[in-house]
Amino acid sequence: MSKGIKIVSGAIVCEECKLRGDVTIGGGTIIHPSASIIAEAGPIIIGENCLIEEQTKIINKAPVGQIDNENVQELIIGSNNVFEVDCAIEAIKIGDNNVFESKSFVGNKVTITNGCIIGAGCRLTEEQTLKENTIIYGENCNMREGLDRPLPQTLQMDTLIRMLPNYHHLKKPNLVNNKKN
């Protein structure tokens, strides 16, 4: 394992996923095989209980022509986020309880707050900050405001925590969860 990668105990990180650069993965987070997390322009910090499915690409990518070593930009991803199959995320910052549905794309000028849902196939490219509980859906990227945050995928996460270690090699956690609860 390369040096910059920190996996907090309790996280399930499959060996076949691709982690590059300075990546921190919080406890309870599940990373499926063939997901890639690439900390190119700065570190990526992923919170707790996130679900990162196959073919997901999370990239910390500085805007074109703005790579400078002095001003390192961190990509902080909160807790309880779901990244569904084949989504591509290059956002500036992501809060908690968001869902990125399959094949969605979030560009590198977008800030996501909490409880947002980016619908399947939706592409967000323009500079913007999504308000809490915003839902983007449909081929025209219609926007509406949800009543509440999307429900966490607890059942699915529990199953995966049980099943994944039976069929996949896991990367060993190298950080102890210092939040004793």
Binding site: I117, I135, Y137, P150
Partner: peptide, 9 residues
């Protein structure tokens, strides 16, 4: 399941 509209809304 598309736009997450619910009758609770």
């Amino acid at each position: 399941l598309n736009c997450r509209w619910s009758s609770r809304d």
